[in-house]
Design a protein around this nucleic acid. Sequence first.
DNA 1: GGAATAGTGTCTCTAAGACAGTATCTA
DNA 2: TAGATACTGTCTTAGAGACACTATTCC
Lengths: 244, 244
Amino acid sequence: MPANPAPLPAMPKIPHQPAQPDFPPVICTVDVVLLTLKDQALHVVLLRREREPHAGSPALPGGYVHAQEDRSAWDAAARVLRDKTGIVSPYLEQLATWSGPDRDPRGWSVSIVYYALVPPDLLPTDREGLVLAPVAKLPRLPFDHKSMVEEAVSRVRTKSQYSSLPVYLCGERVTLPQLQSIYEAVLGEPINKVSFRRKIDELGMLEPIEGELESGGAHRPAQIYQLRREFRRKLSLVQRGINS
Amino acid sequence: MPANPAPLPAMPKIPHQPAQPDFPPVICTVDVVLLTLKDQALHVVLLRREREPHAGSPALPGGYVHAQEDRSAWDAAARVLRDKTGIVSPYLEQLATWSGPDRDPRGWSVSIVYYALVPPDLLPTDREGLVLAPVAKLPRLPFDHKSMVEEAVSRVRTKSQYSSLPVYLCGERVTLPQLQSIYEAVLGEPINKVSFRRKIDELGMLEPIEGELESGGAHRPAQIYQLRREFRRKLSLVQRGINS
DNA sequence: GGAATAGTGTCTCTAAGACAGTATCTA
DNA sequence: TAGATACTGTCTTAGAGACACTATTCC
């Protein structure tokens, strides 16, 4: 997998020697599209930029690849996410790579973009400059960050059709009605209850916590489920989509 | 789309100034997984490397991003493919990006990998050092090229389930039995004939060439179809998969 | 008991696969 | 005419959605 490849056997390096003597250097960065839920809708986590260019503007968390310390672009993305937002996401996957001479005023640049999902309650509340923006109505974003967010949302929607991906948006304990509303928020459309429960059963990722019920409303309480251990960091997939 | 993004408005550049003064440079390359059909099976097109490292070994066509001339990594991939194999592929899409300190002995490197499909009859026959390898039994490949090919094949299989992608493996004129056997070669499993024809009809990408029939066998001749103009460089998609 | 939501049984409808029939060529 | 493959009509079956019914809570 390109997201986090197994390290190859180490080979002798020529350190700090420019490896492309004939070509001007390419700027190599990573950006992270961190998605979460707020008010039953997908939101992207943005940070006010501290440095130029675009200092002060909310933007995707991102940064240079540190060739001395990062073992891969995945590592760089995880480091950037951890250092800039405090979040260690259980799900961080490569989306795609944007590149070109004009996307960054500093020169020809490459950005390897990752996306991640977190439950809203894991977001830090004390972090200065952290902003949530609804993906349905994005603000103006610097660089080509807008197309990155759109592409990430599209990927998450597609993948949620046939996988357990949206469980990364909820905590470890969840009821089926809660999970259904999360799927509906991600997919942006209502889901048939019976079909949804059949699919979740087929995915086989949840197990009921015996005797634990979500009380509180003036109605029958819902069974609380937890994610099976083997799916904590792995997606479950079905052949046919959940809906439509 | 990251594959071939619309150029952003040009901004002032600081030319040839190292943009990451604190960090050692990252090598930025592109590689292309070019797939074709031979003997009813998917094959990858390899080239004998002219330079070190791994000079003489068959490997994926690849090369440095040329920051002076390439407008994007997609452009670089198309250039590399054209210059090294002579092929201008109508379908060239970004797969993923591989990265790390050890994958290339020259230093910390990034390879943005693209995949492409071509009909076998468009392959140059006079090209020195061009080798076809069956993807079902890959030879030893340098760098992390093997995982790139595996990932590309996996992507092509997935995408062929619900799209017209395999039409890029055949010429402009094709019969339904020919196309079905191409789909079967790509997917690696037999397809129900009635279902297949229903799907192709649903995809709406083919139109019969009136009066043109594929004769030759001792049996009823097959209708010849052509790809509709609007799908020449664009995929057609269906909601539900073609098979299984 | 009434209101509200959780959970389930079952019917309908759509679409995929199986099968067999007809069509049209060569030898 | 026999044999081969192209093409098509239709039955069967699997799965998704609709609907309604029961379950269980709070008021």
